[in-house]
Design a protein around this nucleic acid. Structure first.
Lengths: 122, 122
DNA sequence: CGGAATCCCTGACGATACTG
DNA sequence: CAGTATCGTCAGGGATTCCG
């Protein structure tokens, strides 16, 4: 249960920074979909579902900038652009998936706690 | 390298929800500090550093609502309020710490990728 | 098809002042 | 000490339109 506490402040900041990166509305969804292999822009759009193309573009740019995703343009008509996870992206997916699994397993407990709290603080 | 892909859309949403919860500016920092044991409001404030009391309150309320933290009021003068991680909070800290460790180990790679990207897209 | 540009709105966050 | 109340700022995000 993590008895040790290697919490140097600067490290916590780095952690927080990454978590905010990963914690925006769409990043994990996009990375998750790309985990199965490369996808084109609109494939990704429909795969994720509910994302505007502006936010998909923004999210992908951010992921590309941080080295998690590669962007490959095929100069055809009509144009074709593939997005694919890099090695770093795949590695990121490991702890993120673990957290994801935790979230999946504990959604009910959180929901229950939330319901109790809202009940009391009505 | 996560060859499997258990990415049911609803699960991804739950994951995304938790990550946004955990991905706000202060939550991980606060949970991290509480990982070492219970703390009073102002102890937490100075331990985290740079957080306004409004945001600390907000963050703690959110954590309490979701069942990650307990709030204990001692009816003394002056008042004393202790915050402590729940069992659920400690469990959350496990995958979060793993992600944190990943972040700590890979900060440089991300920074390098970012510098490269910014160089090209000057 | 895969964007870029624009407008707009909401909510996160910070600073300050006040209170039991 | 541990908040609450109020205000202001600013970035995240959505809808729409235009472009190569």
């Amino acid at each position: 249960m993590i008895p040790r506490h290697p919490h140097r402040t600067e490290d916590c900041r780095a952690v927080s920074e990454i978590l905010q990166r990963v914690g925006d509305k769409w990043t994990v969804l996009v990375v998750g979909k790309l985990g199965d292999g490369p996808l084109r822009f609109n494939e990704l759009r429909t795969a994720v579902g509910g994302i505007s193309q502006k936010m998909l573009t923004t999210t992908l740019r951010g992921l590309e900038r941080d080295g998690f995703v590669t962007r490959t343009v095929f100069p055809t008509i009509p144009p074709r652009v593939d997005y694919e996870l890099t090695e770093l992206g795949h590695e990121l997916l490991v702890p993120v998936s673990a957290l994801g699994e935790w979230a999946r397993l504990n959604t009910q407990r959180v929901r229950a706690a939330r319901a109790r709290f809202d009940e009391v603080h009505a």
